[in-house]
Every structure is written in structure tokens, then in C-alpha cells.
Nucleic acid binder design. Sequence first.
DNA 1: ACCCAGTCTGCAATTTTATTGCACAAATCC
DNA 2: GGATTTGTGCAATAAAATTGCAGACTGGGT
Lengths: 150, 150
Amino acid sequence: MDRIDRKLLKLLQEDASRTNADLAAEVGLSPSSCLRRIRRLKSVGVIDRVVALLDPAKAGRGMKAIVTVELERHGEQHMRRFLEVAAMEPVVVQAYSVSGSTDAVLMLRLMDMDEFDTLCERLFRDRTNVARYYTMFVIRTAKETTAIPL
Amino acid sequence: MDRIDRKLLKLLQEDASRTNADLAAEVGLSPSSCLRRIRRLKSVGVIDRVVALLDPAKAGRGMKAIVTVELERHGEQHMRRFLEVAAMEPVVVQAYSVSGSTDAVLMLRLMDMDEFDTLCERLFRDRTNVARYYTMFVIRTAKETTAIPL
DNA sequence: ACCCAGTCTGCAATTTTATTGCACAAATCC
DNA sequence: GGATTTGTGCAATAAAATTGCAGACTGGGT
């Protein structure tokens, strides 16, 4: 993990569609060496995978919400069960158990309020072990990156 | 935007490193047609970009935190300024202004507590217009996807 | 300082993949 | 129902990734 590896990771986190020759030139390496480094980074798992990122609005999911959840009965078992159920929902794109007074945090990618309503119905209705939940709708996205700083 | 486009988007959101011929076979199209569809999806911006996703732990950023922020003085101008400053920080990977009693939410990718401490020092110290902030450290990640449901 | 083993590098040949032109089929619009 | 637009498959071409190999670099032991 030297300077060149970090530079490659930085470049690939921004744009993984560039050609190997292109990347090689930018980091000052031959295409073959560059390729071998990238392959190594993949094989050791530093690079987990490469994916296409969609424009949420153009994909019809412009609405985003952050929901904090407080459970009725606490404990590892109950927490696990809730997160399992939440993770099943396609509109739940992130699901965490967290420290502090709230137990879990969910990130939602929604089409409209209707979708939010039906989701709440499913996840937070009676007999669902949710004591209370608090929804914050995203007004403006100032930053949203998948890149991990190196 | 028909059934095939959606299937392609779904596949590319999971793994954008597959070959075109491979994708074409899976959606039942010839490689050339498949390629043209993907190119169209990129040109209209539905596909925003393709990126490499790193393993946070292996990249040395296993710690994640969610911070809700309440500003001292509210209003568009102050909110914009705060988000601008927050977005500059590399460890801030998501920054939103939100509805509800809190004004902003930040997602942090951290190496350790020290990094958290110095960030708070910079973002939340006196004269920074932050009335109070509440930090939730992520204990367990049940789901974390970049894929937008279609 | 020297040598050795292990690792990394660049070059060039090879294989794989993406890309394009073209003729034809399907859907769409009057 | 005919014309126009849009989408499709095939085959040729261009571009890119991948591999073998010989040499350069690196670090540890003496």
C-alpha cells in the first residue's frame, strides 16, 4: 500500500470506467504494472466491487429520508430482528444500529410520500417493537460521496 | 425505459465490471444492442458514473458516525455556509439539510476517535454557529447499498 | 559492501472486449 | 396503411485487457 496504490484507489473511487492505459499514464506506470496493482487491490479486498451510480431523480427516487428508531424492548435479539426486517425493504438503502438514545437509523430512497406511508405502516405499526420513530426528510444534499478518504 | 433498461440498471448497480457480452446474454440481447442501451443510459444521465467501492475496514476507515446538528442562527444563508464548510472535510461523506427539529445531518467515515475529536474541534467549536450536535456511532451495519430500487 | 531471494517493472505478443457500419425488423405517428 | 423513427443483429474493425518474459529494484543476512 504505497503512494501509487493510494492514488489508484482515489482515481478509481471517482471514476472506475477509465481505461487501464489512461490510469497507468496518470500514476506514471506501464499499463501492465498498473493492471497488476489494481488486480491485487481487488484480490485482497481493498476494492470490494465496482458499481454504477444512478441519478436518483432520473431514476424516479428523488426523495430521501433519514429515520431514527427507538425500540420498545431492547437487547441484541430484538435489535437484530428489527434490522433484518428493515433491510429486506428495497427502499431502505442503509440500516444501522447505533449508540446513543436512539437504537437504529435508516436511510430511505423514496418515490413519494405514499411510499413512505406504506413503509411506515409495515415497519413501525403496532406489534413491531418500535416505541417511536423520528423522520427527517432531506431538503438539500450538500455532499454525498462513496469515496473513502485515504 | 422499458423492462430491459431496468434490468440492465439493476445488474450494473450490483456489478459494473461485467463484460458487455455477459450482460447482453443475461438480458437476452445482442452485445451491440446492449452496449447502445447502456451508452444511452449514460448519455441521458440515468447512469451518473461508475465507481469502485472500497472495503472501509481494509481502507483503514472502519469507524462510522452519524451526527445531527442544530444551528444557533437559522435561515438559508447560515445553513448554506455550515454545509459548505462541512462538505469540505474529507471524512464527511454525506451532508444534508433536513426537515424537523435538527437542521443538518452528517455521515462520517473515521479512522479513530482522535480524528472524530479534531473534526468536532473544527466544525462545532465556538463561533461556528452550531448550537448543539448529537453523535450516534454506528455499532452494526445491517445494510448499506448504493443501488436505487427500480 | 556484497549477494541472494522475492517483488516489481516495462515491453511486446496474444487474447478478449468494445465499437461501428449496415441492412433489416418493430414500433409510432399521421 | 404508409412513412418515419427507433431499435436490433451480424460481421468487420478498433481498442483494451491480459500474459510471458527478461531485466531492475528492494530488503535481509553475512
